[in-house]
């Protein structure tokens, strides 16, 4: 062919090799965007998701000290519930809103009932609005930590224990916590163990 001499061939190969490496790197970068996004969201509360706190890790004593400092401040927390893809469950908060002091540990309950004739495994997904409040909304106990299995017709009251961090920006006086129940079969999602892995990877990436 007329592509020229050997040195030309070599430099063509060199350029091609280099560019192929770039292609592979960028392909991986596409996937890396997932944990990067997760980390960013957690750091800045971008999509209203919580900071995950494992049970008992939260220092309740320290939180109670903050209560004193913030006695003059109150925050209204609203609760709401949704079901994804018309999941045939009754699902609602048992209190629609509570007023709390920052640092105070509160417990509220959600009620859920499986209206279908079959056993349903569902995952509750929390979301907080405004988004920047998400990282100051810490849950100590939550039914969203694990998948919930409901037998046909089964009803449960599910507790949620939470603390609003005293560092919550001053201009936020009301925040809303929304839960959406997804049927794991319908959503075709990973097991909780896999979800945890993803979250941990994201956490480490941060």
């Amino acid at each position: 062919m007329s592509t020229g001499n050997n040195s030309q061939l070599e430099s063509n190969q060199r350029v091609t090799r280099f560019l192929l490496v770039v292609v592979v790197v960028m392909f991986c970068f596409g996937f890396a965007l997932a944990p990067m996004y997760e980390a960013l969201c957690k750091a800045f509360g971008i999509n209203g998701r919580f900071v995950e706190i494992e049970q008992g890790v939260y220092d309740a004593d320290k939180a109670m000290q903050q209560v004193k400092a913030d006695r003059d401040r109150q925050v209204t927390v609203q609760f709401t519930a949704s079901r994804n893809q018309n999941l045939q469950w009754e699902f609602r908060p048992m209190e629609t809103s509570v007023v709390v002091y920052p640092g105070e540990v509160r417990e509220v309950k959600y009620y859920a009932k499986n209206l279908t004739g079959k056993t349903v495994v569902a995952q509750a997904v929390p979301s907080v609005s405004p988004g920047q409040a998400a990282k100051y909304f810490n849950k100590i106990e939550c039914f969203c930590f694990t998948q919930q299995t409901f037998k046909p017709g089964e009803a449960k009251e599910m507790p949620l224990r939470f603390v609003v961090d005293g560092k919550l920006p001053k201009k936020i006086s009301t925040l809303t916590l929304a839960y959406t129940f997804f049927d794991t079969d319908q959503a075709g999602t990973k097991s909780k163990a896999q979800v945890d892995t993803v979250l941990r990877v994201a956490h480490n990436a941060k």
Binding site: Q78, T80, S82, N86, K171, T174, T176
Partner: peptide
């Protein structure tokens, strides 16, 4: 901040569901 009424609008294929939280 400081809103008087909160309404949740849920999109469905193809309609809206409204819930007055208060």
């Amino acid at each position: 901040s400081k809103s008087d009424i909160t309404i949740k609008a849920t999109g469905w294929q193809w309609k809206w569901e409204y819930e007055y939280l208060d």
